[in-house]
């Protein structure tokens, strides 16, 4: 990882830097696996492999591939970075050792979550229940952040794109960037793989209660299928396959499902986002609430990912 990071800094060609950052993400996922953080590794895997590199590349396509050469060396910045790094390392000295059973986090909330969450929510995967139920407000905030990010990308640079009429894009001949007509191998393999990836995304969505995964990861995987479709069959065809209003509705309705679950709980006599009130049996209510919330997260994330990618890729510069 360190080698990849140093290489990233030293190389001038930004394509190579993007590739090394891919390696960085891969080894980060492997590291999370070694540290037993399955859900984090899952997120890193789906985001790093499916979205991050593609988005960086589309940014590069909008700007330039060469890093601007700066002559002056900013010594004060180096000093600040060194001091900040030293302070951070000094701070870690106070932190408990890895796996120390006397660490504060193991004494207060963690045992409570680990002991009670399965009984209280009926969901075997503790991470999912903590994220969606105990920390429901945080996750609602994160979902809103993703929604806001996609909405602001739309507002900032989404206006300049071409309007696409049904079927044939205006003027643009479908060559080069936009489609891969002369590539039967890529097209056939993509056609075979896209349904498989979609099914896998739904599996991750539904399986989040029991194993690693959940709404966010499923949304990212779902979005990456459409990115693959856009890469192979062209951005304009993707705009036809999943239309703008569908994308916008997906983005908005996910947050709506999430918040609506909370409001429904409020109306049924509980607190906001208190899923126990949803059904008569509190455990079943929790289960249903977590499922709905994860669904909302997944829908928002996939809608936002597709929207951001299409806007970035559809720019003509």
């Amino acid at each position: 990882m360190a080698a990849a990071a140093i290489g990233m800094i030293r190389l001038r060609n930004l394509f190579a830097v993007v590739m090394l950052s891919g390696i960085f993400s891969l080894s980060a996922a492997a590291l999370y696996v070694v540290l037993d953080a399955v859900d984090v590794a899952f997120t890193e895997a789906s985001v790093g492999a499916g979205i991050a590199t593609v988005l960086m590349l589309s940014t590069l396509a909008l700007t330039t591939t060469e890093e601007a050469i700066k002559d002056h060396r900013n010594m004060s910045a180096l000093v600040v970075v060194l001091i900040a790094g030293a302070v951070l390392i000094y701070g870690t000295l106070d932190m408990p050792f890895y796996g120390d059973p006397m660490a504060p986090i193991h004494l207060h909330v963690a045992p409570l979550y680990l002991r009670d969450s399965i009984v209280a929510t009926g969901v075997p995967n503790v991470v999912t229940s903590v994220l969606a139920s105990y920390r429901g407000y945080d996750t609602l905030g994160e979902t809103t952040v993703i929604f806001t990010a996609a909405a602001s990308v739309m507002a900032l640079i989404g206006r300049g794109r071409r309007k696409v009429k049904h079927g044939v894009p205006e003027g643009a001949p479908s060559h080069g960037y936009s489609s891969m007509k002369p590539h039967p191998i890529l097209r056939v393999t993509a056609k075979l793989l896209i349904p498989a990836i979609l099914i896998y995304a739904f599996y991750v969505q539904a399986h989040g209660d029991f194993g690693p995964g959940g709404g966010f990861q499923a949304g990212v995987i779902f979005g990456s299928t459409f990115i693959l479709y856009a890469l192979i069959f062209g951005v304009d065809n993707t705009r036809i396959a999943i239309r703008g209003w569908v994308r916008r509705t997906m983005m908005a309705s996910g947050v709506l499902i999430y918040a609506g679950t909370g409001v429904a709980a409020l109306l049924l006599g509980g607190n906001f986002l208190d899923y126990s009130a949803l059904l008569h049996d509190p455990v079943h209510g929790q289960h249903l609430g977590i499922f709905l919330v994860e669904l909302g997260v997944g829908v928002t994330v996939s809608g936002s990912m597709i929207t951001i990618f299409l806007i970035f890729a559809g720019q003509d510069r």
Binding site: H183, I185, L186, T189, L192, L193, A196
Partner: peptide
């Protein structure tokens, strides 16, 4: 199975 599908695909794209 999936790697056996995807790896020739990417190698093909790369070589081409």
């Amino acid at each position: 199975v999936f790697v056996l599908y995807t790896s020739p695909m990417s190698t093909h794209a790369l070589a081409q």
